[in-house]
């Protein structure tokens, strides 16, 4: 029952976001709202097994969901901007020192690993190449390793980011 309700609410919110600006009931027309509710119930009936597959409802907490846009617009955007300028500098000068390093994350949930791996990949200069399924270590291709960094067996995840501590944010959101 709970997966059905959560999937229905999720589908309805997505539908309302996509059709915003269609009328004068709020910003939606009455027909769009009715169609949205009907479609959300059908969607939930068909796909209720998939959204909550882990059997853990901590992401239904609205505070955690609100933290996601704060995370994307705040520390993540700062980090991406800084890294973009760095890669732009390296494109022009050709001054690179690439290598694949092992990064310890310590995250346990699938969503946490997913968010950290995607944050690393979207930050220019670092790509997550592979994941160690047992220890949840990430293999990260880094375009410019610091001197001496290659001699370490592995590094902690927050050492990848220069300004903001993104792994701490992800831990707050997803674990």
């Amino acid at each position: 029952m709970i997966p059905f309700v959560l999937t229905a609410i999720f589908a309805l919110v997505i539908y309302l976001i996509l059709t915003a600006g269609s009328g004068n009931l709020g910003v939606w027309s009455a027909s769009e709202i009715i169609a949205g509710i009907a479609l959300a119930l059908v969607t939930a009936g068909v796909t209720r097994r998939f959204l909550c597959r882990s059997g853990n409802y901590r992401m239904a907490n609205p505070l955690r969901l609100l933290l996601i846009p704060v995370y994307i617009l705040g520390p993540f955007l700062v980090e991406v901007t800084k890294a973009n300028l760095d890669v732009a500098y390296r494109v022009i000068t050709g001054n690179i020192r690439p290598g694949i390093i092992r990064v310890r994350s310590g995250l346990k949930t699938d969503l946490g690993i997913f968010m950290l791996a995607n944050s690393i990949t979207l930050t220019p200069g670092t790509i997550t190449v592979d994941i160690d399924e047992e220890t949840h270590d990430l293999f990260v291709h880094n375009i410019n390793l610091a001197q001496g960094e290659e001699s370490h067996e592995s590094i902690q995840d927050h050492e990848l980011f220069a300004i903001a501590d993104l792994p701490a944010w992800i831990r707050r959101i997803a674990e």
């Binding site: 690179i96 020192r97 690439p98 290598g99 694949i100 390093i101 092992r102 190449v129 592979d130 160690d132 293999f139 291709h141 390793l145 290659e150 592995s154």
Partner: peptide, 13 residues
């Protein structure tokens, strides 16, 4: 293989 790479931990693993 990553060209000019100073280290390749994934290849070692």
């Amino acid at each position: 293989k990553p060209a000019q790479a100073v280290v390749d931990r994934l290849g070692e693993a």
